[in-house]
């Protein structure tokens, strides 16, 4: 458990500055935004209490909001993402008994299940985020393009992070 606390704290301290200083500026063609900090929500242990998960989600979103002057946008999306994380997880993995206190990863879930889970979470996050932005300035073509391009772009980077941090020995459930 304490190992998870340290890992999550390190991820928080690493991903949020990386998102705001680096990835916010790596927008492709003005449509594809890499939302790398959602990795923090994706890897929250499934068995973690929903209240703690939502608090972590809210604080993560709030930190990104403060740093990028988007008050409330990411805080709202992260809270919702942390809330629905568990049902999404169970759509791909039937039971969480073996996963007590484990962070979701290719090692603990198996590569196909983890990638499907990460892709679904990324897609949901992008839909939430760009729907909120569309409430302010709406343009259907741009809205759909941003969701699709940002999901793919973010997912590729998340996959790269997974490859970098993943271990070779996979355990399939």
């Amino acid at each position: 458990m304490s190992k998870n606390v340290i890992t999550l704290s390190l991820l928080f301290l690493l991903l949020i500055p990386a998102q705001t200083v680096l990835f916010n500026h790596l927008v492709l063609f003005n449509v594809a935004v890499p939302l790398v900090f959602i990795y923090l929500i994706i890897v929250l242990p499934v068995t973690m209490s929903a209240n703690v998960a939502m608090t972590i989600g809210f604080l993560t979103g709030l930190a990104v909001d403060i740093l990028s002057d988007t008050p409330g946008v990411n805080a709202l999306c992260c809270t919702v993402a942390a809330f629905i994380r568990r049902p999404v997880f169970h759509a791909f993995v039937s039971s969480d008994i073996d996963l007590a206190d484990q962070l979701p990863s290719t090692r603990t879930m198996g590569t196909p299940a983890y990638l499907k889970y990460a892709l679904t979470m990324t897609l949901i996050y992008c839909i939430l985020l760009f729907s909120i932005e569309a409430m302010q300035v709406f343009n259907l073509r741009l809205y759909l393009l941003r969701i699709a391009a940002s999901t793919v772009y973010t997912f590729i980077i998340l996959y790269a992070i997974t490859l970098l941090t993943g271990r070779r020995h996979e355990k399939r459930l």
């Binding site: 929903a50 209240n51 939502m54 608090t55 008050p71 409330g72 805080a75 709202l76």
Partner: peptide, 18 residues
Amino acid sequence: SKWFVFVFYVVLSCVMLF
């Protein structure tokens, strides 16, 4: 409690958002 916490954070975010 899960729902109360959820609604609390969503309302807080919406206050900042709007």
